[in-house]
Structures are given as C-alpha cells and as structure tokens.
Amino acid sequence: MTMQIADSVSLSAPDAKVRAHAAAARNSLRTEPRAVRIVIIALAMTFLSVFVVLPLVVVFAQAFSKGILAYLAALTDPEALSAIKLTLVVAAISVGLNLVFGLVAAWAIAKFEFRGKTFLITLIDLPFSVSPVISGLVFVLLFGAQGYFGSWLRDHDIQILFAVPGIALATTFVTFPFVARALIPLMQEQGTQEEEAAISLGASGLQTFFRVTLPNIKWGVLYGVLLCNARAMGEFGAVSVVSGHIRGETNTMPLLVEILYNEYQFVAAFAIASLLAMLALITLIAKTVLEHHLDEGHDASDH
C-alpha cells in the first residue's frame, strides 16, 4: 500500500527536477562514508563465506574425495540405506502428527477465546527452549526400563525406547512448534469472518474447513511442514538419547554420520552428510518460494 502511495506521488510530480531532489534527499540519508560501507559489506560477506559457504563446500569435497564410485558405494551400504529409510519414516510420522497437532493448536488459539490460552501459547514454544537432550531424557524417564511406564510396557511387550516409536516420539516433540508457529499469526490475522460467512451460507464445519480455512492457510501449512521436516530429518540430540544406536536398526542419518566419523570412515560420513546438506539447500529454496507466496497473501488481504 505504502509503495502505491509513493508511486502516485512521484507520478503526479510535475517534472524530473522533483524526482532528482528526492533522490538527492535519499542519498543524503546515507551519511556513512564510502569506505565504511565497503568494510561493513565485506565483513558480512567474509563471515558468511567462512561460516556458511565453506563448511558446505567442505562437506561435498570430502564426500567426493575418493571419487564418485566411493560416494555411491557409501550411500548404498545397507547401514546407510537403513538410516536413510529410518530418517524418512520418522520424518513422515512426526511431520504428519505435527501437522494435525499444529493445525488444531493454531485453530484453538487463533479462533477461540478461552482461559489458559497464554499458557498454551507458552507451552507450544517449550520444545524450542529446552535442550534436545533433555527432551530425549524425558522419554527415557517415561518409557525406559526404570521409567514410569517401563514395567507396564514390558508386560505388554511394547518396545518404545531404542526403537522406531521412541525416535518418532522424540522427534515429534522437538519439532512440534514449527507448524503451530507458522499458522498462529496467519490465522489470527485472518480472523473468523470468512468462516462465519461460510457457515451463514449453509456450509458444514468440514466444508468450511476444507473450502475456506485450509485454502487460506495452505502456504503457511507448507511453510511449517517444510521447516518441521528439515528439523525432523536433522535432529540429533533428542534422537541420540532414545535411539540406542543399534546399527542398521535405530540409527538415523545424523546419528550414522557421527558413528562413521568416529570410525574414521570420512567418505561415508560426509556422503551421508552431503544428503543432509542437500536437504538443507532444497529447504532453503523452497522456503524462499513459500515466503514469496505468503507475502502475496498478505498483500491481497491488505486492500
């Protein structure tokens, strides 16, 4: 909106002189000397190269250091395949669960007024503020052999710790905030009027959700799912505590990277790491695209 106003002002300006003045005024706002500007930009770029670009390059350089065949061999190793499969399964479970939880939580917070709402909002952020190792330990406390449900689980022959359910639970816990966080501000901004309109036009609750609410928040949902997925696949701390590191069974990709690295299998370690790095790059690109769509949504609702 502000841009449009600025445009119309400059269009209605009688001649180029006014525009020149405006440009001069803008320039005079930048009071820093040229040298300072160059130093600041150079500092930022150097920092970024050393701490972000360089590690990324190193990962791929190491992964391919013994040639592409060694790289492919490392990735097709049964242990590596099992880790990749486990990571995908765990990510699918935790993203699925968090999609449902996140939608429900965001819906409750954005569309209803109730007691304890602030508390709920604070609670949603808990997994972000707690160290992942603690998150993992909580599940050991609950489901471990000495834990609260330990004996009951043993009696019923249910394996949670050191198995897929435990890893999925820990990952779900750690990644819980992403979907909810992406949706709460979006849904709060959109309010309830469109839903009210839908209901007064005769739509049922489900019709309202699928035809009105969901289409309005779809970019936000994708954004939350994307970040949630990236974190779920990359999670190390919480998963490390509950996994038990059983080779070929309960190692996810990040865990396997550490094990291989400790065993001096650098090519294998970095080959797996390169997959995670690629996931990061894809996530980054997708995130940029989604943010663009989200901004467009805001503009549309601005008028």
Partner: peptide, 14 residues
C-alpha cells in the same frame, strides 16, 4: 437461511 453481509465483506479471498 439468513443472508449476512459483513462489514468488511469477508469475501473468500482465494
């Protein structure tokens, strides 16, 4: 079966 016109119209934006 009441037609309601909202203050800010609440048209379905998508």
């Amino acid at each position: 079966h009441v037609g309601f016109v909202f203050q800010h119209y609440a048209l379905f934006r998508h």
